[in-house]
């Protein structure tokens, strides 16, 4: 009997992960021998220089992309070789996403976008779920905007809609890839605080890629990537310490 990721308190796990793009001399190794487990209810920040493989890691862990080596689990399901259909359903039920941009369906209004995960799952939210959504919408300050379309919102508001959507179905795990990358730092931190808060309230796990040491200092755990490898894995630490480490990494590069 193999040990299941959940026995270790993990919601997602990768082991010996490798990802190569292209073949032959032009091949790029985006990830090399990465092993990482995301713990239940924990807020993990993923940091590293541009091109270090953060997005690739996140996509593979979320079942959006497949690795060229190693294994991937989402919950207790080994998704490494899962057929597309099953993987899609798993993603739909267990994972929430906030991307850097293009998060929203332009033809749907705010409410339509927030309810999209239910819609895609072909069901109506239960009364309890509806209450969760209403609370989220209130908390994110979107109550007045439910009938607005994405292009009528500011960047920060759009990201808040994306967060509401990612949390609406209360998935085990939320992935956020530089969710504040297009926002000014104040709006960005606001958005992050909401994300961290909302998830802690429901014991959800978050994995977030960020460049902002202050944002990362709110995380329970910080994983640093460089050249496709994990170079440091630490518990919560100060923004200054994170900034110093990031600087030293950039110098070394």
């Amino acid at each position: 009997m193999e040990i299941q990721p959940s026995d270790l308190g993990l919601v997602a796990r990768v082991a010996g992960l490798g990802k190569r793009y292209g073949t032959g001399a032009g091949a790029v190794a985006a990830l090399e021998n990465v092993s990482l487990g995301l713990r239940r209810g924990e807020f993990t920040a993923i940091m590293g220089p541009s091109g270090s493989g953060k997005s690739t890691l996140m996509h593979i862990m979320a079942g959006l992309d497949s690795p060229t080596a190693g294994r991937v689990w989402l919950g207790d399901t080994d998704i490494t070789h899962l057929p597309d259909g099953a993987l899609t359903v798993l993603r739909r039920r267990r994972v929430g996403f906030v991307f850097q941009a293009f998060n929203l369906v332009p033809t749907l209004d705010v409410l339509g976008n927030v309810m999209l995960p239910f819609e895609l799952d072909g069901r109506r939210p239960s009364g309890e779920e509806r209450a969760v959504v209403d609370a989220l919408v209130e908390r994110l300050g979107l109550g007045e905007r439910l009938r607005h379309r994405p292009h009528e919102l500011s960047g920060g508001q759009q990201q808040r809609v994306a967060i509401a959507r990612a949390l609406a179905t209360r998935p085990d795990l939320v992935f956020a890839d530089e969710p504040t990358g297009n926002l000014d730092s104040r709006t960005g931190r606001e958005v992050l605080a909401i994300l961290a808060d909302a998830s802690r309230a429901h014991g959800q796990s978050i994995a977030m890629v960020t460049h902002d040491p202050i944002a990362a200092s709110h995380a329970d755990r910080i994983v640093f990537l460089a050249d496709g490898r994990i170079v440091r894995d630490t518990q919560r630490t100060s923004a200054e310490e994170i900034a110093t480490y990031m600087l030293s990494m950039e110098r070394a590069a």
Partner: peptide, 16 residues
């Protein structure tokens, strides 16, 4: 394309 990719990421199957 982007919208379709987003739908796929959020859990829309190919046949859907």
């Amino acid at each position: 394309t982007r919208e379709l990719g987003l739908l796929r990421a959020l859990g829309f199957e190919r046949r859907q």
